[in-house]
Design a binder for these strands. Structure first.
Lengths: 229, 229
DNA sequence: CTCCGCAAGTTTGTATACAGAAACGTCGTT
DNA sequence: AACGACGTTTCTGTATACAAACTTGCGGAG
C-alpha cells in the first residue's frame, strides 16, 4: 500500500472525527514529520483532500482544515439530496429484493436495540451498510464515489449536531421507508422517502447546531482572507 | 501560475478533444519531457485527472487515458441528470430574471444563425454560457464543481456522436424550455425541461454512437482481471 | 506615533536523485 | 522446440535538495 494512501486515510479520519479541527493549518513539513513520511506523498494526500473539499487553500498561504458554515451545510445537503435521490431511484429499479429484505430485518433489529448502551455504533454501521447496499444496487460506481465524498461532509455535520434518541428512532423509521420503497421497486416512493429523510436530517442538524450557539466557526486565526483592512 | 495547473489543463484539453486517445499510456517520464516539466507537477496533474475519471490506473502498471464504454455513457448521464436537474431547480428558485431574459435572447439568436457556416462554435459557447448562468443562479459552488467534472465527460461523449443540424435545432428548443422555466421561477418545469433535454441528448448520443459501429473501445490490451480500481 | 520599506525567515513549488518492484527478453534446460 | 528461470531494464513511489514567493518583524523616516 502506498504511503500517500495511508496519509490520505489518516488525515481524512482525523478531519472527520474532529481531531483536526476546522481552521487548523496543515503545514507540509509539520504534517509530514508528524506522520512519518516525506513531503511528496503528503502533498498528494493533501491534494486529494482539497479535491474532496475537506481542506481548503488559504489564499496563497498554505492549507487549512475546511470550516463548515451555514451555507456549507445548505450546499452539502442540496448536493447530497440530488445524489441520494438518484441513487435510491436507480436502486429501486435494479435492486435484488433478497438483499433488501435481509437489510430490513437488520435495521429493525438495530432500531430496537437503540435504547441499550453503546448501540449507536451498531446503528450507524447498519445505516452505512444500507447506504452501501443502495449504491451497489444503483449500479453506478461514479455515483457511489460522488456520494462517498459528500457523505464525508455529512458525517462532519452530524458530528456537530447532537443526535438524541428521539431523532434516531425517527431516522430508523425513515430509513425503513426507503428500504421498503426500494423493496417494492417503486422509483417514485424511493425518491420521496429519501427526500423526506434528508429534509428531516437537515432540519435536525440546523436546529441543534443553532441551539449550540453557532456553526463551526471560520478559522479563528484567519482574520481576513481577502486582504481588506 | 503553477506549472502543475498548466499541465493539468493541457492534458485535460488533449484528452477532451481526442488528441490523447483512450487507452494511450501516460508514462510519467515521457509526458513530463513532452510538456517540459519535471515529474513532480506532472504527477499532481495526473492525480487530479484520475480523480476526475479522465485517467485510470491500469492495475499496478501505469496510467492510461480512460476509455468510454456504453456503461460509462449510462453512468455519466445518470449522474449528470441528478446534478443538472438539481441545479436547474435551484436556479428557478434563486435566479435573477434579468440575466435569463438576456440569455434567452442570445440563445434564440444563436439558434437562428445555426444554418450559417461555422456557427456551431458560437452555439456551443452560448450553451456553455447558459450552463454557467444556471450554476451561478443555483448558488452552490460545490454543485457547480461536480457539474463541471461530469460535463467534461459529456463533452467527450458528444465528440463521439456526430451532431446534425436537426439535433442542434431541437437542442435549441430544449434549452429554451429550460430557460423559460427558470425565468418563470417554476422549479418543477425546470426539472422536467432538463430531464427532457438530457433524455433526448442521451438517445441521440447512443443512436449515433451505435451507428458509428461501436463505442470507444476499452484499451484492447487491458484485461483488468480484478475489479479493483 | 504611525506608516512605509527592507531584510530575514519560513513555506510552498519544482527538480532531481535513489530505491524497490514489475515486466520483458533471453538463455539454458528438458 | 517449448517451458522455466534468471537477469536486465524501465517504471513508479519516495525522499531530499534547491529556488522563488510570501509573510513577518524590525527599523527608520515623516
Amino acid at each position: 500500500m502506498r504511503s500517500s494512501d495511508r496519509v490520505y486515510v489518516a488525515l481524512r479520519d482525523e478531519i472527520l472525527d474532529g481531531t483536526l479541527a476546522p481552521g487548523v493549518p496543515l503545514g507540509e513539513i509539520e504534517q509530514s514529520e508528524r506522520l512519518g513520511v516525506s513531503r511528496t506523498p503528503l502533498r498528494e494526500a493533501l491534494a486529494r483532500l482539497q479535491a474532496d473539499g475537506l481542506v481548503v487553500a488559504r489564499g496563497g498561504k498554505g492549507l487549512i482544515v475546511a470550516g463548515i458554515t451555514a451555507d456549507d451545510v445548505r450546499e452539502i445537503f442540496e448536493l447530497r439530496e440530488a445524489l441520494e435521490v438518484k441513487s435510491a431511484r436507480l436502486a429501486a429499479l435494479r435492486r435484488d429484493p433478497a438483499v433488501f429484505a435481509a437489510l430490513r430485518t437488520d435495521i429493525v433489529a438495530a432500531g430496537e436495540r437503540l435504547d441499550s448502551e453503546g448501540s449507536r455504533g451498531d446503528f450507524y454501521r447498519e445505516i452505512a451498510r444500507m447506504d452501501a447496499a443502495i449504491d451497489e444496487a444503483a449500479g453506478s460506481p461514479r455515483l457511489a464515489a460522488a456520494l462517498d465524498a459528500v457523505r464525508a461532509h455529512a458525517a462532519r455535520i452530524r458530528r456537530l449536531s447532537s443526535a438524541d434518541d428521539a431523532r434516531l428512532a425517527s431516522a430508523t423509521q425513515e430509513h425503513l421507508m426507503i428500504v421498503d420503497a426500494i423493496l417494492e421497486g417503486s422509483e417514485t416512493m424511493a425518491a420521496y422517502a429519501t427526500e423526506l429523510h434528508l429534509h428531516r436530517s437537515l432540519a435536525h442538524a440546523l436546529s441543534t447546531i443553532d441551539a449550540a450557539g453557532a456553526t463551526m466557526p471560520v478559522p479563528a486565526s484567519v482574520p481576513n482572507p481577502s486582504g481588506h483592512r
